[in-house]
Amino acid sequence: MNNLPLFALFVVLTLGAYLATRWLFLAYRHPLLNPVFLSTVALIAFLQATGLTLEEYRPAKDVMTYLLGPATVALALPLYHNRRVLKSHALPVLSGVIAGSLTTMAAALLAGRVMGLDGGVLLSLGPKSVTVPIAVEISRLTGGEASLTAAFVVATGMIGSIMGPSLLSLCRVKSPVARGLALGTVSHGQGTAVALLESETAGAMGGVAMAIAAVFTALVAPYYLPLFLR
């Protein structure tokens, strides 16, 4: 770390943006006030305005995301509290997540084809709904571009967590189990974060969906995605 003041500035700005937008979201509860979305826009605008680069932001990013791993492990606790729901709903949970994963992959590739995207971009789009580390692996396996896939994953997480809750309400999906599963299936950790704001049960189900979608997608993507490229 050769630039401590810059590092400190980035941490303070990121934390400040988060706390301010979180306060705003909790006060008004409007989906467009999504804290991740607003903070990201603010930080990118700051970097652009000052001419600072992503490379310079990286050390701060690495430190701030260090606890994401342990935080994901912590999802085991709400999962444990909801173990009875999980056991009695094993079939709906499993089939719902699998159906959603298959649909979102198919929809992305078909829409991409209609819009004339080239094959490399399409393959990078395939695993966009699962958590970054596994999406990147799938992308490498199927011939996509890892960094592009990572960007799609993050964008999907943001889009899904902004419009997911209202969309589910529009479809009259009220059960916290179903809402959490839907958010986790299409928007991995970011969807889970929004589900956690709704309720503990929804959050736990987001974690479950994220895990099932990751494993299932990793297993089927190499065979499933090529079907849409022919």
């Binding site: 419009m163 059960s175 299936t185």
Partner: peptide, 18 residues
């Protein structure tokens, strides 16, 4: 593409589970 595919996926999961 991202919005449409996320919306369809979320609707399918949410509605089928419910």
């Amino acid at each position: 593409i991202l919005a449409a595919s996320a919306a369809i996926g979320a609707a399918v999961t949410g509605m089928s589970v419910q």
